[in-house]
Nucleic acid binder design. Sequence first.
DNA 1: CGCGGTTATGCATGCTTCGACATATCGCAG
DNA 2: CTGCGATATGTCGAAGCATGCATAACCGCG
Lengths: 117, 117
Amino acid sequence: MKKLRARLKLWLSTKNAEGVFGDGKWRLLKAIETEGSLKAASKKLHISYRKAWGDLNKAEDALNTALIDKQRGGNMGGRTDLTTQGKKWVKAYTKFRDDIEKAMEKAYKKHIEELAK
Amino acid sequence: MKKLRARLKLWLSTKNAEGVFGDGKWRLLKAIETEGSLKAASKKLHISYRKAWGDLNKAEDALNTALIDKQRGGNMGGRTDLTTQGKKWVKAYTKFRDDIEKAMEKAYKKHIEELAK
DNA sequence: CGCGGTTATGCATGCTTCGACATATCGCAG
DNA sequence: CTGCGATATGTCGAAGCATGCATAACCGCG
């Protein structure tokens, strides 16, 4: 038995929609924040523009909130950045995720590590 | 924005294998423990026998440990139950998962709840 | 007004996963 | 030695999801 690593995937869901918001969208929003465009963000995360775009739509639709502010055409062809609301979500989710990840590390050491000697 | 629910998926991985052990296998082992057979366990979890069997093989292979003790033929056609090692894993993983789930609830209340008003 | 670079969107193809089937094997009971 | 019921495995097809391609629409700039 070799060294194991604990991993997790988090997401939020409503009654009717499953993947409302989660790790993927969180990463995507962060990337948009630093990159300034959806295209650049998707490239950075190695996912297709097609998927990134679709995911965002789904998230905004499900949360019923504008997370990003998009504009096409113009100086550099277009741009995308986060709304105030979007930034709030990124911040909140970052803390949320951090807390859980820490708890996971601790729980791993406490319960699993010895077994996987 | 309606009431959200935080959800998570946990698993352990090694350098080469991804889904070594996780929620699915954990549930499966628990079911085997109470049901006494792989067939009954898979039915209880609403997954195909084919998948259950394949998953177990993968887990034992990756962990390089016998988790279950299987026997075919015989009185009732066969049976399956957990090895000592398997029981240990179930117990440990249960605690592991509980800890994290609690942390998740707490973190949700702390960071997300207000946003998803 | 045409160019460039981005957002916007449908569609067809491909890949991965899972389930449904189809057998084969095993060992006790009668 | 035959039947029953569970384990053991390969295989083919359906479903879900992501990628890639093809096209539009948009708009500041030279």
